[in-house]
């Protein structure tokens, strides 16, 4: 899976550089997030700007990351959701669970407040 991971100080920015986040690659995303949590990096911004398609398994991986971050007193926030991807969060009511920002700069800034 193509991921760009950058430590931005207050949070780690994880940009998913894949067109699809589905049952084929969501396990890998989950593992990358777990690795960061094990390193004590509990504040994450997952940027989905490049992602055109998310299935239930992709949503599940993000929920898993969110729960892990929260249980370590951190947070997992999302940015850059394309319109159709955003609809998936609304349909599953996950837009009430995640803090969702227009772009990664805005999401990162929210960690600095």
């Amino acid at each position: 899976m193509n991921l760009q991971i950058e430590d931005k100080g207050a949070a780690v920015l994880m940009a998913v550089q894949e067109e699809r986040l589905d049952a084929h690659n969501s396990g890998e995303l989950k593992n990358h997030m777990l690795k960061l949590f094990e390193e004590g990096k509990n504040n994450l911004v997952v940027d989905l700007q490049a992602v055109r398609f998310v299935d239930s398994s992709g949503l599940g991986a993000l929920v898993s990351g969110f729960k892990n971050a929260s249980s370590r007193n951190g947070n997992l926030k999302l940015s850059g959701l394309q319109l159709q991807v955003k609809s998936m969060f609304e349909l599953t009511r996950l837009h009430r669970v995640f803090e969702i920002y227009t772009d990664s700069d805005e999401a990162l800034a929210s960690f600095q407040q």
Binding site: S56, G60, A61, S64, F66, T92, R96
Partner: peptide
């Protein structure tokens, strides 16, 4: 039926059904 929002699995059938 939709499960709890924080469930990691079980959304696929609900999505197809919707």
């Amino acid at each position: 039926r939709p499960g709890h929002p924080l469930d990691e699995h079980g959304r696929g059938i609900y999505l197809m059904h919707s």
